[in-house]
Amino acid sequence: MGKIVDISKWQGTIDFAKFATEADMAIVRVQYGSSTEDIKHKEYEAGLKANGVPFGAYAYARFVSVADAKVEAQDFLARADAATKFYVVDVEELTCPASEVVAATQAFIDVLRSAGKKAGLYTGHSFYKTYNMGAVDADFVWIPRYQTNDDGTIHQYVPDMPCDLWQYSQNGRIAGVAGAVDLNTLNGEKSLDWFTGKVSASITEPTAVGDVKVYPYVKITADVWMHSSPDFEVSTRVRVLKAGEIYKNYGENNGLIGIGGGYVSAKYVENTNQVATTTSDVWTHSTPDTDVASRVKVLSAGTSWKIYAETSNNMFKVGGEYVSKSYMTIN
């Protein structure tokens, strides 16, 4: 996996052609409160777009009230580039009464959401605990926590609280930037594709042959929660799926794979196949049907074959051909 880097004017001039060779994603500071627009954000956004690096944006919060938080959020939306994949409010110092910081942060996020944006919260490790920032309802949480000897490498001091992005260093390095940068890593169920809005390129999507749906198999790569709906909410958790279990893939939605009866993060699945044995001699078919015209060859009874998918009309996909499930048993 490449690097996830957050950048602001302090990084100076960036060679984005070099930057793109190491970066999977960037997060660009757009403003420092409403009064100060980051003088480099437009240059950075243009460089990232020109070199194919997906990016989100963050706004350093300086709001003094709930009403002021809404204004800052609106200014943020107006300034950020249209190609921005997600938006973050950065709340790491108290600029409003302590009793209002959660409500003001929530108001900021609600403005972003009302504009149809994916909205996250960045806040300090101690600040999160001191001011009950866990009460903020955000689409994702981003937390910094460094080791004492911050040498730019990932380490064991993971944030104490649940978070989706972990800023593990403020002394990292990346091609194209002369000085230090903040480095981040995924920490939780959400995949990189969830942040960038891409369909997981490594996961084979369901296809259709005429009216028949073809559902490829996926394997769970680590113990992970299944959710009742396509989101990552704690309230929708159903049960833990075990590493090695195999399911049909009904398609990706919001960074999760539908597996029949629930959804699992695309981060924790991979393409796979199963092995099935024929229970009698049986024809394969070039299309998912049992028509005589589509017959290809006979599989002998008692032979085993790799199967890569199942269809909506009860056939297995064996290589590029199809066999009725009535004549095969999964091993």
Rank of each mutant, 00 (worst) to 15 (best):
D291N: 15
N184C: 13
S294C: 05
K42I: 11
D160I: 06
T303D: 08
D90F: 08
V240K: 15
V240P: 02
S200Y: 10
S114H: 12
S324C: 10
A222R: 14
T278N: 03
D137R: 10
Y217G: 10
A243S: 15
M328G: 04
P216H: 08
N271L: 04
V264I: 13
T279A: 09
D75A: 06
V282P: 09
A266P: 07
T123A: 04
W10E: 14
V234K: 15
E72V: 02
G176P: 08
A175C: 04
G124Q: 10
P144A: 00
V71M: 03
Y128L: 05
D137Q: 12
A104Q: 05
M226D: 02
V5H: 12
V158A: 07
M226Y: 01
D231F: 02
I39K: 14
S126L: 09
A138K: 00
G2S: 14
P216G: 03
R173E: 11
K219T: 13
A57R: 09
E233P: 06
N314C: 08
S35L: 08
V64C: 06
I259D: 07
S35Q: 11
K213S: 13
S312H: 09
G188Y: 01
M328N: 01
I257M: 12
A26M: 06
V292D: 12
A107F: 03
E93S: 15
R79E: 06
S300W: 07
